[in-house]
Design a protein around this nucleic acid. Structure first.
Lengths: 351, 351
DNA sequence: CTGAAAGCGCTTACAG
DNA sequence: CTGAAAGCGCTTACAG
């Protein structure tokens, strides 16, 4: 069931059979018909490995994602991957998935590249924001990043406008009378989290009033959301929230959360202390539109800044495809706007 | 930076260089040293594609997972994948990930196999339980399944003892005075869900009392959990639950849920109607120990049957490795026991 | 202990 | 429109 068998069967050369199968124009119409039907009949499947070696094209792309940090965000990674693989499947490309220990991203990429098993690489968010992996951009290999690259790296990238999304979200709260705002952010060494922090600050500056009374950064897990809020409340006194004690030491009346999971954790800490959303504390969270974690998981349903991570995955795969074909430049970058979707977790404060 | 360069540099043959690099014993100690240091100096990376073609070994395994049904369970798939990829990374194997449209599992597997890019295949749960993919077992290709294969297929597999887990969970409820039990199950065409249903039935039979008053099967999402319980309550009247009206038409006092997400949805439906867990309804859910979805996501924390899907992923990868090397038989199967972990979602009913 | 040569299954100039 | 031949970068009998 190799090319050779077909050629033998038909009394043709390997060359002709190969060309007929690959749709080269110079093959006679009748010859092509015969080849195609023989291939069908013999259930011929080309050996991708041999083809790779001959053409130098792997027909596969790699996705590199750091292990430990990501695990807690697994639904997000998975939805991204689903988007990527949908698009790749349409184009007949394989997806080689590599999780690497944090800090070993560079090696992971290099060995994938050197092994010749991929034509291009997708970096999931934080990678390019790590100094150690910054040099990957100079590797002269097709790479597309999800996330805004730092350090002046020029890699094609797709990111969402985190700055604007969180500026708008904070503005939304300020317009509804909130003055003490908290931010439960992701790891602020990563651009998306940095941008969100800056966005919140910008909104406060624009408004000329209000302050950021809690700014926690780190892992975006349920536990951390709960712990951060619990700590704050226990330190400042639970009563402070509902009684709206003023002053710098008073807890926030509203929380911006970088993920649904973080918001769920925050909600738990509040509820454990008898506080209610949005009566006592309002919440806006960022929603990657992960099927497994809808904003209605929270009670009440969360107001969110929304952007589909799955659609982003699709688009990143498209961009990588284009990049491999040399159709887009190394500094191509796309920025998607996130939508503010109002639900039930924000209260208008009386004056 | 190929073998040829090193050979040229050192005045050795390709043969010797290749053998030195691959640790063959018949190479002179001094020769090996020189080759190794030259390889290091020239930053030699073997071309995996060429090696594949020459050896017939791909040094990669494929994971095939159906697309649509899985998306809602993405954290589970992802944690499984993480387990698999951890183990594969240790062994220097690549992971080729393929999501296929439901019903196209067979094609997905076949084309991966035919392409020669993988040495073995991992089937994620439901695959082998589909008649169309049953024939894969006869393909004479190393395959390991996660889940209990149906139809007398003999593929090495790892599964958890779903029957026993749910029998025990139902027994736990029966022992605490519950007589009307509901089951929110996954798709019962799949073995894990079938087994859970049977387990519950067995417990009821053992006890000689109690009945299954709600048995819903389908997608394991938050929405479906909520809708199934909402429908039931709205049909039978909310009051019926807390007042513990007896009779066949009365709603369950306890719910067994095949996933945390399902339990969260059920909890939502209850809360929306003013019912509380476990005061009005007790819940036990199955927990795959997915980092993103801990049982404390629910309020109160859920009592669960627990088994790590990530550890299962690791083990499945190990089994596939062994299978590829011919170390285990086609009918090798492992069954893991799930642990019943008590938390706060089960109430003892007064008599 | 080392090397010349064939081969893995394709693709693709090159020649006709 | 078709074919003979070289080549992709390795591995591995086989011979010495």
């Amino acid at each position: 069931m190799g090319l050779k068998e077909i050629a033998g069967e038909l009394g043709l050369s390997l060359t002709t059979v190969s060309r007929a199968l690959n749709g080269y124009p110079e093959v006679g119409i009748e010859t092509r018909r015969r080849v195609l039907s023989a291939a069908e009949r013999l259930n011929y499947r080309p050996n991708a490995v041999a083809r790779r070696l001959a053409t130098g094209r792997a027909n596969a792309v790699g996705v590199v994602s750091p292990l430990s940090r990501r695990t807690l965000e697994s639904p997000i990674v998975m939805d991204f991957l689903t988007g990527v693989s949908e698009k790749l499947a349409e184009d007949g490309l394989n997806l080689v998935f590599t999780q690497v220990q944090e800090g070993h991203e560079r090696e992971g990429c290099e060995s994938l590249i050197a092994s010749g098993t991929v034509d291009g690489l997708i970096l999931f968010s934080p990678l390019l924001e790590d100094e150690r992996t910054a040099s990957l951009a100079e590797l002269d290999f097709p790479i597309v990043a999800h996330g805004r690259p730092l350090h002046g790296i020029s890699v094609p990238s797709l990111s969402i406008d985190n700055y604007e999304a969180f500026r708008q979200a904070a503005g939304h709260l300020l317009a509804r009378g909130h003055r003490r705002i908290g931010l439960l952010n992701g790891d602020e060494r990563q651009s998306y989290a940095m941008d969100r922090l800056e966005g919140v600050k910008a909104a406060l500056a624009d408004a000329g009033e209000g302050e950021l009374v809690l700014a926690a950064a780190g892992e975006m897990s349920f536990e951390r959301g709960r712990d951060a809020v619990a700590q704050m409340l226990d330190r400042q006194g639970v009563g402070a929230v509902s009684k709206e004690v003023s002053g710098a030491e008073a807890p926030p009346t509203a929380l911006l959360c970088s993920s649904i999971l973080l918001a769920l954790g925050a909600g738990r800490a509040l509820r454990e202390r008898g506080l209610e959303i949005p009566r006592d504390v309002s919440i806006i969270a960022h929603d990657d539109q992960v099927a497994a974690l809808p904003p209605i998981l929270a009670w009440p349903a969360l107001t969110t800044t929304t952007s589909s991570i799955r659609a982003a995955g699709r688009r990143v795969a498209e961009l990588l495809d284009a990049r491999i074909r040399g159709e887009i430049a190394a500094d191509h970058s796309e920025v998607w706007k996130a939508d503010l979707v109002e639900r039930e977790s924000v209260r208008v404060l009386g004056r």
